[in-house]
């Protein structure tokens, strides 16, 4: 491992630079393509140029003028945030119990949550559709929030219990000795230390709910609860002879923005090694 010692040669540097470039290009070309499409005019849409010849913001203006998209964006944000909050709060409590307590049925609980995560969602769509229709949840926010929580919970329990296990148990004992009630010990000592784990989980869960297409398309029927991924597929052009590629591209760019904001916002809170210094070592 000579490279770690600071003996970086030019050849070595350039090899890494090329490798990095390949990875970045591979990952970003589809994204850039979509962005390029979204800035093109209808005429130049299919000219095959990567960089648009004629720039326009018309596509963006158009999608924000249709109530369909704005409604869907609102639905998406609302449903994803509510699902994330509920899944993370429930997941935190469950993960804490899984990591710390010894209760009957613990293994069964962990096993079942793993089972839920493994279950193919496609096979659940038809029964869920029937159930939601008969209980009146079809095409409502709760109708999407409930399945999202179900599939996000195993994820959040798993990630969070790994984080809780890292927190030394003696800290809780110390808090108890210092005069804290169990609730205070959790709030003032455990929760702040688990925060990076909670934020990581929140990001993962949010992305999971935000990106979902399967449930969104199957369990909604109008713009009352349709989320953006589903709404995109219902986009039409200005006339029936016009392709909605431009507006779909613009919408796709718009819906990645909240994810980026969400990640950037919480990334600052994900500080690795927050527990260092708690105990010996």
């Amino acid at each position: 491992m000579a490279g770690l010692g600071g003996t970086e040669t030019l050849g070595r540097k350039s090899r890494w630079a090329i490798l990095d470039l390949v990875v970045v290009v591979y990952a970003l070309v589809p994204v850039l393509w979509i962005m390029s499409l979204s800035f093109k005019t209808t005429k130049t849409l299919t000219d095959g140029n990567f960089i648009p010849r004629e720039w326009t913001l018309d596509n963006y203006k158009a999608i924000f003028q249709t109530s369909e998209f704005v409604r869907a964006l609102g639905n998406s944000i609302g449903i994803a945030i509510i699902s994330t909050v509920i899944a993370v709060v429930l997941g935190t409590m469950a993960a804490y119990a899984v990591a710390r307590l010894d209760f009957p049925g613990k293994k069964a609980l962990v096993g079942v949550s793993l089972l839920v995560a493994m279950f193919p969602q496609v096979s659940l769509v038809s029964p869920l559709f029937e159930i939601e229709r008969s209980v009146g949840l079809f095409n409502t926010w709760p109708g999407l929030i409930l399945p999202y929580i179900t599939f996000a919970l195993p994820l959040s329990i798993y990630t969070l219990s790994a984080f809780f296990r890292e927190i030394p148990w003696e800290l809780e004992k110390a808090a108890k000795m210092d005069g804290a009630t169990p609730a205070q010990a959790f709030r003032k000592v455990i929760a702040p230390l688990a925060a990076p784990g909670v934020f990581t989980t929140a990001i993962l869960v949010f992305i999971l709910c935000w990106n979902d297409f399967l449930f969104a398309i199957s369990l909604t029927s109008t713009s009352a609860s349709r989320t953006v991924p589903a709404a995109l597929s219902f986009f039409t052009g200005a006339s029936q002879f016009e392709d909605p590629t431009g507006s779909i591209s613009a919408a796709a760019v718009v819906i990645t923005v909240p994810i980026i904001v969400f990640v950037l916002l919480f990334q600052r809170r994900i500080v690795a090694g927050l527990t260092s210094g708690a105990v010996k070592g």
């Binding site: 003696e170 808090a175 702040p192 927050l274 708690a278």
Partner: peptide, 11 residues
């Protein structure tokens, strides 16, 4: 109480 691992609050 003083613990063997000190159990200081790292945050």
């Amino acid at each position: 109480m003083v613990f063997q691992s000190y159990a200081l609050y790292p945050h």
